[in-house]
């Protein structure tokens, strides 16, 4: 799975969460911030975690990813950090699967 494919999937999830009306003026890319750009509510972030689990299953452990971060670090994350994490998880899962 390429980084572009993952970014497209994450972008679709985020548009569903924040609503297409608010997303209309946003170009969601790797540098987009969950906080200052998307203004994501903390409960919406929980919803994103659920959508990631539905999409990627056991290949991606979002909570484990968050576990190493304090709340302010989570809030300041960019979409790119999440995409990179998922890409690394996918590559690892592929390597294990052979």
């Amino acid at each position: 799975m390429t980084t572009d494919q993952i970014l497209a999937e994450i972008r679709a999830m985020l548009i569903e969460i924040i609503g297409s009306e608010y997303a209309l003026g946003l170009d969601i890319g790797m540098d987009t911030s969950f906080d200052s750009d998307l203004q994501l509510e903390s409960i919406e972030f929980v919803r994103l975690a659920t959508m990631l689990a539905d999409q990627y299953g056991n290949r991606v452990d979002f909570l484990e990813f968050l576990a190493s971060k304090e709340l302010d670090e989570i809030i300041e994350m960019t979409v790119g950090e999440l995409v990179t994490y998922i890409a690394n998880c996918s590559a690892l899962a592929d390597a294990i699967d052979g």
Partner: peptide, 9 residues
């Protein structure tokens, strides 16, 4: 408040 305050902490 909601569950997210515990979810991240």
């Amino acid at each position: 408040d909601n569950l997210s305050s515990f979810y991240y902490t």
